[in-house]
């Protein structure tokens, strides 16, 4: 068996060694009291630090901003489609050209806001 590096003892404690190497170290620990004492000291230190670090644990509440649910998405889609239909229909009434232009602008602003909003969202 190749000699055990001190860093390997740390990694053994952390459960980070390959199973075959971990078994070799386990066997050495069982037969070598000096190595066992070294390991025990490491283990106790580790447990104390782990416990100290855990004492700082607390779960904060985080907010990611408003979420658009499927109903909001549906309502926005409906408004946009409705606006487009209205724009198609209004010019047929001749004298309502002013209203047609206003609706055009509203729909354009809505579409623009939607595009900007979508671009800011992660895919």
């Amino acid at each position: 068996m190749r000699p055990i590096e001190p860093a390997e003892l740390s990694a053994y404690l952390d459960g980070e060694l390959a199973p075959s190497r971990a078994k070799e170290i386990e066997a050495r620990l069982a037969s070598d009291p000096a190595l066992r004492a070294q390991y025990e000291e490491l283990r106790m230190q580790d447990a104390a630090w782990m416990s100290a670090a855990r004492s700082a644990l607390s779960v904060p509440r985080v907010r990611l901003g408003p979420v658009e649910n499927r109903w909001q998405f549906g309502a926005r889609s409906l408004l946009l489609v409705g606006g487009l239909l209205a724009v198609r229909l209004v010019p047929k009434f001749g004298e309502l050209v002013g209203l047609g232009i206003t609706l055009h602008l509203i729909v354009l602003a809505l579409a623009l806001a939607w595009v900007v909003d979508s671009a800011r969202r992660p895919p």
Binding site: A53, R54, A56, L57, S58, V59, P60, V62, L64, V67, P122, P123
Partner: peptide
């Protein structure tokens, strides 16, 4: 990648995250 997916991955990390940031 939905908000729910992100939340699901993030929530278990928050306690440790706070301890790490505090350190």
């Amino acid at each position: 990648r939905s908000r729910e997916h992100y939340d699901r991955l993030l929530q278990p990390l928050l306690g440790r995250a706070n301890a790490y940031a505090r350190s």
